[in-house]
Design a protein around this nucleic acid. Structure first.
Lengths: 150, 150
DNA sequence: AATAATTCCAACTAAGTAACTATGGATTAT
DNA sequence: ATAATCCATAGTTACTTAGTTGGAATTATT
């Protein structure tokens, strides 16, 4: 059930781009540094997101990446699908509907369907804008706290 | 995000035991045959469930396994935790609370928490009795259909 | 024109995990 | 005594994860 680091790092990078939306290009070096991971690895993740049309890129010096659409028009499910391959707990409940043969008499199928529905509800309804909002609020609180301590 | 075959096979075996609840011991050979998998592999999964106290065993000829508690008192989360190690999408949202260091300013944490809540809602509230019910109903329907065709 | 910063691309690798298989011992109904 | 069963551990094969490495193409800056 675990999410891989691709999903973790890639999604957080997208939130960073969301926070920066409208503010020009951000390089992989910057994005990678924010999470303390290697430039090259993050590059791979972003490459997938670019091929999927979720980010735009500009090559050369001062180049970088930016979101291809406004943050409130990109949901988490889209992002994770690109990074993780799919977000289904089971092949037989995906959109591809790869049935396992005994689908109509599988004792677990109703459970997987219900579970997948709940998961999709969360992933579909959360956008990068939501996450960026939370994040800014949180950072702001921490800043305030810092100031208070000083 | 995928569940492994351990979770799939093991849970279905538990449902089979739930259907048979009160009807004596069932051998791994029988349980394995029901799912078309190897006896030895299923044995491993059942062993884990036994060590966790979810099933009772009787050795020797005519021995086998049975649920340690009534089916309505075993929920899916317990079972999957034993088989999969844990059912969390991320270390930082488990009961162990293995925080990742930047937990309070992680842009994704609110999402993981919400997602995990929804998942647990489903897994905690579904019991083996629920699954066995669904299953019997489904099998019954298929039987009726068969009879109609003949 | 040269340089430095950057994206882009494709392999390669090391470690871990999944999904089994194999073997043999311990126990118990018949 | 025998056959059926659980119990325990170790081995195997293939796949996946989580990166690293090396370099080519592009572009702003000097």
């Amino acid at each position: 059930m675990k999410l891989s680091t691709r999903g973790r790092y890639g999604l957080k990078a997208m939130v960073d781009l969301a926070v920066n939306y409208g503010g020009g290009m951000v390089s992989t070096a910057t994005l990678a540094a924010m999470q303390g991971i290697s430039d090259a690895y993050l590059e791979q993740l972003i490459a997938a997101l670019r091929k999927a049309g979720l980010v735009n890129s500009v090559r050369g010096a001062q180049g970088g990446y930016s979101l291809a659409r406004p943050p409130d028009q990109i949901n988490v499910n889209e992002v994770l699908r690109v990074l993780e391959g799919s977000t289904t707990v089971m092949e037989c409940v995906g959109t591809e509907r790869a049935e396992c043969g005994n689908a109509c008499s599988c004792s677990a199928r109703p459970l997987w369907l219900k579970l997948q529905n709940r998961i999709d509800e969360v992933l579909d309804s959360t956008t990068l804008a939501d996450m960026a909002e939370d994040y800014k609020f949180q950072r702001n609180r921490m800043q305030t706290m810092q100031n208070h301590i000083e």
